[in-house]
Amino acid sequence: MQPFTYMRPTTAPDAVSAFASAGADARYIAGGTTLYDLMKLNIEQPRHLIDITAIAGLDKIETDGDRLRFEALAPMSAVATNDVIIRDYPVLAEALSKAASQQLRNMARVGGNLLQRTRCMYFRNGADGVYPCNKREPGSGCAALRGLDRGQAVFGTSDACTAVSPGDFPVALVAMDAQLEILGPAGSRTLPIGDLYRLPADTPHLEFTLAPGEMITAIVVPKTAAGRGSTYHKIRDRESYAFALASAAVALEMDGDQVSRAHIALGGVATKPWRAPEAELKLAGQRLTPEVALDAGRAAFSGASPGKYNGFKVELGARTVADALLIAAERSRS
């Protein structure tokens, strides 16, 4: 790790101007669970760190009114254990509490969590230049393409990159149509969360649509009756403390036995948090039987393009969606 300067501004505008004056190679750091990790791997090499965790009053969790609002510096564990979220939006609470470990959830903040970088092993293991990686070194190639791709994406891939977007919470937020509040040198703006993430295409090193110096300041989730009938279902290689092989964020608005509206997003299988509109459409107006749920799961994966070893994610993902739908429906009835 190369040396860097370290600043700790106490207001968001100060942080933005600190970033502007630091110039190139500056990075905001919040919990640091991704950035510091990648710095230790010599993959991230910032020259200036601007620690935003001393900014006062940017960690509020608001559940009144017609929306949920989580300020960026709220720890993941704080949102995960909020009573209103647990009761009314289990999909959000579960997406947070099934991520990482309690230690890391105490450190990581919900804003930074949206910017977690991929766990692709070829990306993380290549600071010495052994494995080519277009994300790490644009134009160098992608070792995963014909490599050990069991963990790689089946949606949103390109000839340059198949790396999975690793987060859980972003998947739930995409399902719930969240908006982001963003502050930057040019002022503030809002952004639908789905627009935060870029597909790799031929520029996999560009992962987010934030401009230099912009930071996420809050996450806003519109309230919906579907919140109570929701779940985040996550299948992994062990029971806990692992990234998803396949996951599904599901929320259902029911009209009696029938689905009136379904929210479905997929994790662990795509290069960005992946909404599944085909499956959502298929469910509208249906009575949710196990067969209908599995049909919807299969519809969600109809466009998948697996590689050599990750073909199982298509069937596993479909069944994960199906089980998630049944859990959500059960909750919507209680």
Partner: peptide
Amino acid sequence: HGQCGACTVHVDGRRVASCLTLAAK
């Protein structure tokens, strides 16, 4: 790298992975 928990300590009463915590924090 925050993958094992052997470095767990409490900061302001909450458990954290001290290996992924900048000392500056």
